[in-house]
């Protein structure tokens, strides 16, 4: 640690961040607990209702529908997206691949496109006369050429669009981790006669475990907050029969369309609790078997 600096120096350096953090992050977080016990109409009128918001929330069928949809999306993201990302990273990590930089660039590019713009693109892709139906009907002549994706298969469509958006993004993390896997260890295992699966289980998995656990957490946090993709793709609504209603969308509808900021805060806390629960479980699971 250094010495010989004036006492005020570190305080001046952290002051801008700490001030904004205190005012617009720490305080609002605490204050949202107060708001969750109010019924409000916009920012101007509020009434204290104690735990009524939470009571109502527990028996609110729309909330539970939103929770269910959000779980489906999170499960889809983690269980389909991450294996694909890892697989792609392993392909790209093969020593004989040429043009790795170009491939990496291509695979990553969708992550740069904002979610709203992705929703615009996929609105056209999933159009009855769009690219998805055309391709599937071309490959399998039995496939309905005008299948209404955004009416019949809403959550599936959202998962597909987010696959396109994030598989390459998560691949970057796995690729960085794979490049840290010791080539010597892998070769030694090969000399000892370990097959590709044994090498994957005993050499690769332990080496990428910390990064994998980070990526799972990041994906969980991200997918639990699904809003923009669904909201924009489904024309500023939860879609037909609320098939695409998500927790954050329900929060937004209550807080900023019906202007009940109190109920919105209660939904926010429910989301935070769900998320922290999942983060804890994920942390437990990912540390099982670690020495």
């Amino acid at each position: 640690m250094n010495s010989g600096y004036p006492k005020w120096a570190p305080y001046v350096l952290v002051a801008p961040f700490v001030t904004v953090f205190a005012v617009f992050m720490a305080y609002p977080m605490l204050y949202s607990a107060v708001m969750a016990m109010q019924q409000t109409y916009g920012a101007k009128a509020s009434q204290f209702v104690f735990l009524q918001n939470f009571e109502y929330l527990l028996s609110d069928p729309f909330f539970w529908k939103a929770v269910r949809n959000t779980f489906v999306f999170a499960a889809g993201s983690v269980l389909i997206q991450l294996p694909l990302s890892l697989g792609l990273a392993m392909l790209l990590n093969q020593p004989q691949v040429r043009g790795r930089v170009i491939f990496r660039l291509i695979f990553f590019s969708p992550a740069l496109v904002g979610t709203v713009f992705i929703a615009m693109m996929f609105g056209l892709m999933f159009n009855k006369q769009g690219l998805v139906n055309f391709t599937l009907h071309g490959l399998f002549s039995g496939f309905d050429p005008v299948y209404p994706w955004l009416e019949q298969f809403v959550m599936g469509s959202l998962i597909i669009a987010s696959l396109w958006q994030y598989v390459g993004f998560n691949m970057i993390y796995f690729l960085a981790a794979l490049q840290n896997v010791s080539r010597d260890l892998s070769e030694a295992a090969m000399v000892d006669g370990a097959g590709p699966f044994a090498r994957f289980r005993n050499v690769t998995i332990p080496a990428i475990r910390p990064v994998a656990s980070f990526v799972v957490l990041l994906s969980l946090i991200g997918s639990f907050q699904l809003f923009e993709l669904a909201w924009v793709l489904l024309n500023n609504s939860g879609g037909p029969n609320d098939q695409g209603l998500t927790v954050v969308m329900y929060l937004y509808q209550n807080g900023f369309i019906s202007f009940d900021l109190g109920y919105a805060s209660a939904i926010g806390w429910a989301l935070a609790i769900l998320l922290m629960g999942f983060a804890l479980v994920q942390h437990r699971v990912s540390t099982i078997g670690e020495n």
């Binding site: 617009f24 305080y27 609002p28 977080m29 204050y31 927790v247 807080g255 900021l261 919105a264 806390w269």
Partner: peptide, 8 residues
């Protein structure tokens, strides 16, 4: 989650 901060 960022959404917790929207209302406050």
């Amino acid at each position: 989650p960022g959404a917790l901060l929207f209302a406050p």
